[in-house]
Simulated assay, not measured.
Amino acid sequence: GESGYVASEGFPNLYPPNKECIWTITVPEGQTVSLSFRVFDLELHPACRYDALEVFAGSGTSGKRLGRFCGTFRPAPLVAPGNQVTLKMTADEGTGGRGFLLWYSGRATLGNDAPTVTCPKQYRRTGTLQSNFCASDLVVTATVKSMVRGPGEGLTVTVSLIGVYKNGRLDLPSPPTGTSLKFYVPCRQYPPMKKGINYLIMGQMDEKRGPILPPESFVVVYRPNQDQVLTNLSNRKCLSQPVRAW
């Protein structure tokens, strides 16, 4: 497909023991496969000997291995060299975790290195506020100040911060009120935003572009009564810590 989610068996509950599962993802010819992990929670071992997720270029596990992962740190975004990538997850007889949830999409690199994704025909916001909070790198409330086309086919959206509940490892002041922050929005229409409106924004951190709002990002109109809920969520430990290991 052009884009979508892949999850381990049983997700969001614990994955079963003594399993080997393989997925092959194929996007249109002329594109590369981009993987962005939303949740990652596998049994931890320094060498990932017990449970592990391996990523291979191409169709099957004979291609170049792009990574081998375990534990609760989400892998950095991956871009395969071609239009196919294979995932292989193995679990031993012991108790594991919740597994993984990732978003894949086709990507073409333009001259200015702005990623092109396949944009959906309509915006579908999935999951709850809590599940999206745990799956996001960056959670802020902010006012949209400007929306400028580019780089590439996307938008650069500049916001003025009201509050910060997850900082995505950015060095943001406290309190952040009035601080400007720029998001790259690959799909101009999704998530839908308008200049001058206050939003609750849950985004990701891309290793090249910085703050980014993929088309499935959780973005809603901000209301002050959300502050207490967000504060409670920020003080609560997620089952899988949304921290990238660059």
Rank of each mutant, 00 (worst) to 15 (best):
P173S: 14
G178V: 12
P242V: 04
E9Y: 08
T32G: 00
G82D: 12
Q84K: 13
V27N: 06
I212D: 04
V117Y: 15
L42K: 00
V229T: 15
G30E: 02
R209T: 10
I201K: 04
I162P: 00
T231W: 00
A142W: 11
R49M: 04
T177L: 10
N13W: 11
Q130P: 01
G60I: 01
P77A: 11
G111H: 06
A80E: 10
R65A: 08
F56N: 01
N13S: 15
P16F: 05
P242N: 10
E43S: 02
L78M: 14
L35P: 05
M205D: 03
V221F: 05
E9C: 08
S136H: 04
D137M: 01
G150T: 05
I25M: 09
F40C: 11
V140K: 02
F73T: 11
I197T: 15
G99K: 09
L181S: 10
C238Y: 03
R49A: 01
L200A: 10
G154M: 01
G163A: 12
P115C: 13
F183V: 06
L230F: 02
G71R: 03
R188F: 05
G71Q: 03
C119R: 03
G163H: 13
H45T: 12
Q204H: 12
V140Y: 08
R223C: 00
L213D: 02
L138C: 10
N112P: 01
Y5I: 14
S180K: 13
Y15P: 02
S146P: 06
R107K: 13
P75A: 06
G60K: 11
L233H: 06
S217G: 06
H45V: 00
A7K: 15
G127Q: 07
T128I: 09
L161C: 06
C48H: 01
F11K: 10
Q204G: 04
